[in-house]
């Protein structure tokens, strides 16, 4: 990142905050769309009400989905919809006239919303800590410390993947079907609908190594279950690896897509 970009960051973050405040209704609606874990929580706790379901007690499900709600709230992104809309309407042209890579521009405006998302996520974390799920949480200090970088990496993987999907609109103009496919895979393989260990064997094996696990499940796992030091190292390295792959992939798709940009809409 160049020094001039670094100098621009405080202003970009300040304007990002102003935008988030200006779009408060839209922001709240978006927050509501990330509450699916609460629905899943209700569903799975009723499944495990009488007896544990494959070693998952009702308290386990509460802890899992409340942790999931925090992760989803802090890592979710709408950048693909923003990019494809800007490409479709032609307003992307105006963005491209600025000497700032759109990846950084979008990153700043999304990071500016993090404090507001935290306001929503923090009370959930408190509920999580004091609810019946508290006993089902991991307590190892190193693991707890790793939650923060793991959340940051989960955010980066999610953002990069959605940035790449948005940039595909340079090639296909309409990418809604692709986004639906992405969200289907994400829901299934990330642990968003159910913990990965509950998936059928074949799917589970795919899910465990797929990037989707590192977008949602890993930070939840860090909060939820004790993990061996060696497994922990492998998982964190895998997350860093996926972060690099998706970031490089996103920038590559962007560069390729830009060549095909037709700057439509006048």
């Amino acid at each position: 990142m160049s020094s001039r970009t670094l100098r621009a960051i405080p202003t970009l973050l300040r304007i990002g905050v102003a935008e988030t405040v200006a779009y408060r209704a839209e922001f709240l609606v978006w927050i509501l769309t990330t509450t699916l874990p609460l629905v899943m929580l209700a569903l799975w706790t009723s499944v495990a009400a009488e007896a544990p379901f494959r070693n998952y007690t009702s308290a386990d499900f509460v802890a899992y989905f409340l942790a999931g709600l925090i992760v989803r709230n802090l890592t979710g992104s709408w950048v693909a919809w923003q990019i494809s809309e800007e490409i479709r309407t032609g307003t992307m042209s105006m963005r491209l006239l600025r000497p700032l890579h759109p990846f950084i521009a979008f990153t700043m405006s999304h990071l500016a919303a993090v404090p507001f998302r935290t306001i929503v996520a923090l009370p959930i974390a408190v509920v999580l800590l004091f609810s019946s799920g508290a006993s089902a949480l991991a307590t190892e200090p190193v693991q707890m410390l790793l939650v923060v970088p793991s959340l940051a990496l989960a955010w980066l993987i999610t953002f990069s993947m959605l940035f790449a999907l948005g940039a595909l609109a340079f090639l296909f103009t309409k990418t809604m079907a692709l986004l639906n496919l992405y969200f289907g895979l994400y829901s299934l393989l990330s642990g968003y609908l159910m913990p990965i260990p509950l998936l059928p064997s074949g799917l589970r094996q795919i899910a465990e190594v797929s990037p989707f696990r590192f977008m949602f499940s890993l930070p939840v796992e860090l909060m939820k279950r004790p993990i061996d030091a060696s497994d922990l190292a492998v998982l964190m390295l895998a997350q860093v690896g996926w972060a690099i792959v998706t970031l490089v992939g996103a920038l590559w798709v962007w560069r390729k897509g830009l060549r095909h940009f037709e700057a439509v809409g006048g």
Partner: peptide
Amino acid sequence: VMGQKSQLIWDL
């Protein structure tokens, strides 16, 4: 400058 496109942030 495109008369039909805006670079101004709409709500600010």
